[in-house]
Structures are given as C-alpha cells and as structure tokens.
Design a protein around this nucleic acid. Structure first.
Length: 792
DNA sequence: GTTCTAGAAC
DNA sequence: GTTCTAGAAC
C-alpha cells in the first residue's frame, strides 16, 4: 500500500519537481491544474517535463518472442518519426543475414554516438540478454527504454508460422516450439536493470498506443520515466487513479495513451486482485540527480521484483493439494505429515520444474506446520514444494498463487457435499465438475486418484485458471464414515502413501501431457490455434473465456486427429502395480524412469543454460552443445535438446522428428568443425538406448576412444554395441514408425569386449585399449553404410 | 554419470 | 603383490 499512496502523492504533483533540490519532497512548483504543455516554453522550470529541449537519444530495447511484432514496431515508428532512428536487428545485421550480439552492440554504440536513437530488435527475453545493451548507457547520455511486447503466445506463434520468409527464418512447426521455449524462460525487464522507462504491451491495441507514443517523440522530447502499461489488477487503486486522471487534464498525448492502456487492462472481467499490487506506474524521476532517481528506482525495483517473480512463476505447472484424510477421516497428523514429506521427496524430481503446494485454510493448521518443519529438516527444495495458507478454490484470486491443478479430498462416490474441501471444490467448480467427473468414473477406492479435466466453462477454470481437478481418496480412520480402518495404521499408512503417489503421478502425467501438447503445436498448423491456447492458458491468467473454451475443443479435435494418445484424460487408479500397468497401456509399453539427483545435470543445463554458461560450447533456443564432462574419446560432445519432457529416446515420438534432425545437423556441424582441425578423426553420432543422464542428448564421439575416462566394460559397450543407436537410424525409425526402437538389454552392456574395427575380443579394458590404439583395420561394413560414420 | 572399494583374477 | 571388475553409494 505504501507504494500506492506514495504514487498518488507523486502523481498529484504532475511531473514537476524542483531541479535544485532533488531529494526534497515532490513539492509541486506549479499548480497541478496547469497544463504541462504550457510549461514547455519554460526551460528553467521544465527541466523534467514530458517534452523538453534536452531531448536525449534513446535506446529502446524491444522485448518479445518471435512473432511479437518487434520489427513491425520499429518500422512503424520509423516510418513517421521526426527523430533519427537506427534499427539494430540481429536477424539482418550480417549483411542482410543473421548476425551476433557483438555486431548488434557495436552497431548500436555507433548509432548512439552519431546522436541517433536506436531500436534493439532482437528477443531480449531475459536480463542477461539485455544487460550488455543496458551498459551502453554508461558511455553516452541517453535514455534507456524497454518496450515489452507481451502478447498471447498463440498470436506470436501463428505470426511466426505464417512468415516463412521472415528475416529470422523461423518457420513452420519450429516456430511454435521456439516461441514456447522462449516464453518459458522469459524474464520481464525491471527498472533496476538500468531502464528509465519500461512500456508493457499486452494487447495489439497497447502496441498501437506505444507505437504512437514513440512516433510522436520528437528529437527534443523525452518520455516520462517509469513502468507503464503493466497490468495492475488492484481495482481499488486503479479506479482512484482513473478518477484522478479524469479530473486532471493530461495534456500530452502519450500520457493519455498510457492511461488508456492501463484502463483497458484493469477491465479484465472476472479477475480480482492478483498479487502484483505494487507494480504501479512509477512516475517520472523528474530530476536527473543520482540520489533522487535512485530512491525511486529502489521502489521500482522492489515492486517490479515481486511482481516479476509472480509473473514468471505463472508459467510453472503447480499442484495445490489439501492434506488427505487428516480432517474428517481423522488420520493421525504426525504420520500423515511423514507420508506427505516422503511422497513429496519422491515425486519432486519426477515432475520436472513443477511445484507441489500443500494448502490449508488457516495459519493454525497443525498438519501444515508439521509438514513444514519436516520438509525443512529434509531440505526439500522450497521452489518445488511449499505450504500455503488459503482457500484452495481461490488460490489465484485471493492468494495470487497460480495452480493449474488442484487436488480434491474426495469421497468414494465422487459426489459433491459432505463439507470440507470436497464440498467447497464442487461448489466452486460448478456443475461442470460434477458431470465431468461422472463421465470419467463413478467411484473411487481408498488409495487412488482420478484426474478430471475441468471444462472451460467452470468458474474455477475461468476465475482461477485451474485446468484439472484430481480427486483423491485416502484411508478413513473415522468410524462414522465408510471403510473405517479401525485404527489399523499399518494399512492406513500404506493406503495414504498410495493415495499421494497416485495423486502426484496423476499430476506428473498432466504436466507431461501439457508439455507434449505444447510441442505438438508446431506439428500441424491445423491444430495450431487451439493447442497453443493450451499454452497461453497456462501462461497468462488473463486469457479470456472464449479462447479457453476453444482450447478444450482443440483438445478433443487433436485427439481425434491423432487418434492415439489419450493426452489429457488419463485416469490414475488402482494400486501401485496397477498404476504401472496403466502407464504401460498409455505409453507404448515403457515405464517412466526415475532419475537420480546425479542424473539431472544435463536437464538443469537445458533448462537454465545461463547458469552454466562457461562450460557450454553453443546455446540456442532449442539446443545446447557441451563437452562431455568425462569424454570417452579425443573428441566427445553432447548435443542437448532443450525440449521439456524429452528425457530420453523412449520419450521420442513423431512430433520430435524436427528436434532429432536439428540435433543431428548440429552434431554434424561440430563433427565437421573437429575434422577441420584434425582430419584423421572419425565421428559417430548417436544415442544411448537407456541414458544415465536425463534430457535427450546426442553423443558426437570420435572413434579413437582414446581417453582416461573410458574405464570399464559399460563405458565401452555403451558406445560399441547395439546399445548405441545411430542418429541416422533413429531419424529413419521415427519417420517411418513414429518411435525409436530401443536396445536396452542389460546384457549388451556386459558383453565381452570387442574391438570396434576388427571385432577381436579382449580380456579387459586395458588390453582392449592397448589394441585399439594400434588397430588399423577398416570399420565394419555396417558402420560404413548410411552415413553412420563421419570422416574428413 | 562417477567414485569408492572389496575381492577376484592374474 | 598388483591389476581389474563389479556393485553400492552418491
């Protein structure tokens, strides 16, 4: 609230503070009613007004994924601006072809030096990408702006797909994957990064207004500093600002535009007060003295920081669940807390970057505090699991916590009523949940869970962004209720464990399928619109109701179209064994692998390459290239797919063909690079049938196997038996059969050691290594075919 | 994936 | 005694 009050005070003193007293209160030196434009003539007073004669060059960093309209934005502004603008576009900076960041930086620096204003037309979606450009500020007296084109993913994707001739050369399905990937890692700019002004555009009309603002920015004008256009859903403050703005004359075009942007954002129907209360318009730092602006930036930083977290977390799949069986079913709290923590630990790594949140209504909740302390003892990652006090049916609207899936402590008949969580969830979700549940399954036995996709017409969907409700039934210790276990905690604990396991598995499956849905977007442009809604639904809490409805139709459509994978409506029933069975049935016979903590390294790199930048050879939106940490040959690199949910070959399906081809192409490129340095090498590109490390990675390995890290039979056989699947063969198989065949027989890894050239057998690794260091035999015919080996 | 180490193989 | 493997732990 402090910020808001502060803001109003400042705003009531339109744009004018004394120049010589930067740290003073924002005392107006003119009457608020006086028009700002009147003061433009008065340089002494108007040093900081909206337009003044100190007009500085401005560096505008555009922020947005492909298809968000960055280039159009620049072109539109430049078409009718009286300023001299330079557009620095990474897609064209290399003589019309794509260039690199360094080229952009030097071009921008040159432009600024020449007194031009500059647009940085590249995605700039995270802080790191922006930081070098922001640093240009240090060299010259310029204004540093960001314009965020934060439009629905659907729109960006469809635009990207349409323009195959676009400078960025993104086309077809790849575009969808790239846009989704980029949006998952987006980091909205903050004033604290060094910006004087940030304009957020969340609709096409916002973009139009921003274009208008920059078009009208003459060579001698400056724009007000601060954040503009970011949705501020606090309607109370909103309306007072609007009221205020209506009262006061706002003479400059830009200011009224900003007002209208804000206004339209505030009108989102059915949305009440999400959490970014502090993300308020930071009024111009009207004196340029360091101390003065710092103070305001400090505020901005704090507020935008909290807001940014929230915004970025909106992307994270989240399951909110109540404590099962501890309320009406009277299960012992301490035992239940142990089970929750145990199961959370078990599943935290299986749900990717998703979050699990235990919810209860009050701060006094015993189970909440028990779980909290037990989780802390176990050092459970608080990003992945935490507790939350609030109403599970109003997590987003009143708590600001966005959860796409909530669990219901159901009864065996799966009927509404009965009080507690069950009653309130059925109540909040409307009759839609009841009928969707009924369509799915009639009853539930203890220890089981069933996931029900929530129809888009459900109020819980519309208001809270909940896409699925997972009904869970735990053990009952209450003699007043059915199936009482009569204090048999041995059985009770087992049932409760099963219940949570079933719940988390259900959630993991939803997450996985949603990721797949997103990736499928790219595959068939027919499906593009509807499926991408699914993504933007996860992405933006403000997606309107109509598009949500479309999204569900899209699911139905896509399922019919594909005719196979039961993507969303998977039921999770039965004991643990049954669950494995159902897993089998669903996904072509393979069970999902549990990855140990040590196996996550590549996955972490793929998800957050910026944290591991130093060790990486190449980073792009969809792949990463790095040296194998323990190379098994002179040259051994990994080409890592960044696709979420694509852990290994068994996850690969039709829709990943482009990914496979991309990995192969990048692998070849690196092999060729190494060959240019050492023509005697020979490379093989392929995958381990069952990799030890999570996240699909292609090995590019030279066939000398000259490495101190190649130490045992498993090492050798993993590259020199059928366990190693050549990339070319995998591409063929996926093209022809929609999946890869795996040679995951353990026997392959313990086979006798044979030279990969002459096939002679050797008793142990040292002897084998000694042999291969001098074996000159040609490679077997099989390897010479079909481009399996790559030589100079 | 690696490291560590007991014990088999030489 | 040294070398090497293989299984457990991480």
């Amino acid at each position: 609230m402090f910020h808001c009050i502060d803001f109003l005070q400042v705003f009531h003193t339109p744009q004018l503070y004394t120049r010589n007293n930067p740290k003073s209160d924002p005392t107006p030196i003119i009457q608020p009613s006086r028009r700002v434009s009147d003061l433009n003539m008065d340089m002494d007073l108007d040093q900081t007004s909206h337009r003044n004669k100190d007009g500085k060059p401005v560096l505008v960093i555009l922020v947005g994924p492909p298809g968000s309209g960055k280039s159009t934005f620049c072109e539109e502004v430049m078409r009718s601006s009286s300023r001299s603008w330079l557009r620095v576009c990474q897609d064209t900076i290399g003589n019309g072809k794509a260039g690199n960041k360094a080229q952009c930086l030097s071009s921008a620096a040159r432009g600024l030096k020449d007194g031009k204003s500059v647009f940085i037309d590249r995605c700039n979606l995270n802080r790191e990408q922006r930081s070098d450009f922001v640093k240009l500020q240090g060299e010259t007296q310029i204004d540093m702006h960001a314009v965020v084109l934060d439009l629905p993913a659907k729109l960006c994707i469809s635009r990207s797909v349409k323009r195959s001739g676009h400078e960025g050369n993104l086309q077809g399905g790849k575009a969808a994957a790239v846009v989704n990937r980029m949006l998952q890692n987006k980091e909205l700019p903050k004033l604290s990064e060094g910006f004087n002004r940030i304009t957020f555009c969340q609709s096409e009309s916002n973009v139009k207004d921003a274009i208008d603002t920059y078009q009208k920015l003459g060579p001698l004008d400056n724009l007000s500093h601060g954040c503009f256009g970011q949705k501020n859903p606090d309607s109370k403050i909103q309306s007072s600002i609007i009221k205020f703005l209506k009262k006061v004359e706002v003479p400059v075009d830009t200011a009224s535009k900003e007002n209208s942007i804000r206004d339209s954002n505030s009108k989102t129907p059915g949305q009440s007060d999400p959490p970014c209360k502090d993300m308020e318009k930071i009024p111009s730092a009207h004196d340029n003295s360091k101390s003065g602006s710092k103070e305001i930036e400090g505020q901005a930083d704090k507020s935008s920081g909290s807001c940014h977290n929230q915004v970025s977390l909106d992307d994270t799949p989240t399951l909110a669940f109540p404590s099962i069986s501890t309320s009406d079913f009277q299960f012992n709290h301490d035992k239940a807390a142990d089970i929750i923590v145990e199961k959370v630990t078990e599943y935290a790594n299986k749900v990717g970057n998703a979050r699990l949140v235990l919810v209860d209504l009050t701060h006094k909740s015993k189970i909440l505090s028990l779980v909290k302390s037990k989780a802390a003892e176990k050092n459970i990652d608080t990003q992945k699991f935490f507790t939350h006090v609030g109403d599970i049916t109003r997590l987003y609207s009143t708590g600001g916590l966005r959860c796409n899936v909530i669990a219901n402590a159901a009864n065996w008949r799966l009927k509404p009523g009965g009080g507690g969580v069950n009653a309130s969830i059925f109540d909040a979700a409307g009759p839609e949940l009841e009928s969707a549940t009924k369509d799915k399954v009639k009853t539930l036995s203890p220890g089981n869970a069933v996931a029900v996709p929530l129809p888009s017409s459900s109020p819980l969907f519309i208001r809270e962004g909940v896409t699925h409700v997972i009904h869970v039934l735990g053990p009952n210790m209450n003699p007043q209720r059915p199936n009482c276990l009569n204090n048999d905690y041995e059985k009770g604990c087992k049932v409760l464990q099963d219940a949570y396991a079933s719940l988390f598995e259900g959630f993991a499956s939803i997450v996985k399928n949603q990721v797949q849905q997103n990736e499928n977007i790219g595959k068939k442009s027919l499906e593009l619109q509807d499926q991408s809604e699914q993504h933007s639904r996860n992405h933006s809490p403000n997606t309107d109701q109509k598009s949500k409805r479309d999204a569900d139709h899209g699911l139905v459509k896509s399922k019919k179209y594909k005719g196979s994978q039961d993507a969303f409506d998977t039921t999770f029933t039965g004991s643990r064994d049954e669950k494995v069975d159902s897993e089998h049935k669903r996904s072509d016979g393979s069970t999902r692998k549990a990855w140990g903590s040590w196996a996550q390294a590549l996955h972490q790199i793929a998800m957050h390459p910026e944290k591991h930048k130093d060790g990486l050879l190449e980073i792009s939106e969809d792949i990463i290239v790095l040296n194998d940490m323990y190379p098994k040959a002179q040259k051994h690199v990994l080409i890592l797919a960044r696709t979420r949910g694509l852990d290994c070959l068994s996850d690969v399906h039709n829709e990943h063909l482009l990914v496979l081809k991309r990995l192969h192409a990048v692998g070849l490129k690196w092999a060729e690079k190494f060959l240019s340095e050492n023509a005697s090498l020979v490379f093989r590109l392929g995958y381990h049938s069952v990799p030890s490390m999570r996240q699909l990675h292609l090995h590019v390995i030279s066939q000398d196997f000259e490495s101190k890290h190649l130490k045992n039979k498993k090492h050798w056989n993993s590259f020199n038996t059928a366990f190693f699947r050549d990339s070319v063969d995998i591409i063929d198989e996926v093209s022809n059969h929609g999946k890869a065949t795996l040679k995951d027989d353990d026997k392959l890894l313990s086979m006798e050691l044979r030279c990969h050239r002459c096939k002679s057998a050797h008793p142990n690794i040292p002897r084998l290594k000694s042999h291969i260091s001098s074996c000159q035999s040609p490679f077997p015919a099989f390897l010479l075919e079909n481009g399996r080996l790559v030589g100079a």
